[in-house]
């Protein structure tokens, strides 16, 4: 199932919470939705889950409009919000049974669905526990079970790992990987970017309601780490396909906000960093060079791996001493920090 967010805009009074964003993704993959607080993530997710209506634009599931056919879309979409189940005087099993009935599951089909989901989310021992007696991690599992009870093709999750301990986060990660293997499309927002980096195949980054960057994870990381492949970026109003198809074309059509180049660190004996810095600056492919203390040089060099080797080689050729030489690998967190400015609306 292809999920397509098309020119989505949501305005609250004078505030433009989501500003003309477009992207798409397909099943069998996990996609992260990243942005600072107040960026418009939850608003976008609520519209995708049919809880809210866009001011303009639409979300299409296999071409079917979520604006015009919300009832039909709800059968194929599961939504796990950032809040936890709130009922007090109801048992876990009764709670899930209510949602199974509400999705029209009947008789044996409902019993099977309930048993499957209880087993999948490891809620077997908690079946007869009241919701108020559960810990946050357990409630999160109940919330996931509720979102999956009707076997949706697309799972949308808003901050699923928030407030979970490391073990619970690990369990959640494992469950998500299994769901992706079951050919479900998973779209989740999170602030724990290191977690996203481990499980996501792609990511969408927004700030102040505008799309900053989108693409497969490899493309996005390559964007800041330098070298091929070229980064996949999109501007508001342009569509970003997260399924990994032709990112070069997207890059060619969209201006880039992040600096291009490979980041390298050269370690020198104490007090010998300055000559190395000057030598690197002589080369036309060097974009910037910074000194850290008096024994470390950070440089950003344009070009591919061979060209970077050539530039660093000029230092060795000049007879300068270099103790070690590293190519810096940036993660999703660095990428996030680099391309967002932390502004809220």
């Amino acid at each position: 199932m292809k999920t397509e967010v098309r020119n989505l805009t949501r305005v609250f009074g004078k505030t433009v919470a989501v500003n003309d964003i477009s992207f798409s993704f397909e099943d069998g993959n996990i996609f992260g939705f990243i942005g600072p607080n107040g960026a418009g993530k939850t608003t976008t997710i609520r519209i995708m889950a049919t809880l809210d209506l866009a001011t303009s634009g639409d979300v299409l599931y296999d071409g079917v409009s979520a604006t015009l056919y919300p009832e039909a879309v709800r059968r194929v979409v599961g939504y796990m919000p950032d809040s936890l189940p709130g009922y007090k005087d109801i048992q876990v099993w009764e709670y899930l049974d209510f949602f199974a009935r509400s999705f029209g599951l009947k008789g044996a089909e409902r019993t099977r669905a309930l048993n499957d989901i209880v087993e999948f989310t490891n809620l077997g021992e908690l079946r007869t526990k009241f919701l108020f007696a559960l810990s946050k991690g357990m409630k999160q599992r109940v919330s996931l079970a509720r979102a999956l009870i009707h076997n949706p093709k697309v799972l949308i999750m808003d901050e699923p790992a928030a407030g979970l301990d490391p073990r619970a986060r690990h369990e959640l990660r494992t469950l998500l990987k299994i769901l992706a293997e079951q050919k479900k499309a998973i779209f989740l927002s999170s602030h724990i970017l290191s977690e996203l980096q481990d499980i996501c195949d792609g990511a969408v980054i927004i700030e102040q309601g505008k799309l900053l960057s989108a693409g497969t994870l490899n493309d996005l990381l390559a964007q800041v780490n330098g070298g091929a492949p070229a980064p996949a970026q999109a501007q508001s109003g342009e569509s970003a396909d997260l399924s990994g198809t032709s990112p070069e074309q997207q890059a060619a059509s969209a201006p880039q906000t992040a600096p291009k180049g490979v980041s390298v660190t050269l370690k020198t004996p104490r007090g010998e960093a300055e000559p190395v810095r000057l030598k690197l600056l002589e080369h036309p492919l060097t974009r910037s060079v910074d000194l850290f203390d008096d024994d470390e040089v950070h440089a950003i060099i344009e070009g591919n791996d061979a060209e970077v080797s050539r530039v660093v080689g000029t230092v060795f050729a000049a007879g300068l001493t270099v103790l070690s030489f590293n190519r810096n690998q940036m993660g999703l967190e660095e990428l996030f920090m680099k391309i967002t400015q932390g502004k809220v609306q």
Binding site: S83, G86, G104
Partner: peptide, 17 residues
């Protein structure tokens, strides 16, 4: 009112009810 403030009503509205 609790259902509304706990957002439980939203989840019921996301079903086919």
């Amino acid at each position: 009112a609790e259902e509304r403030s706990d957002k439980e009503l939203n989840y019921s509205m996301l079903t086919t009810l």
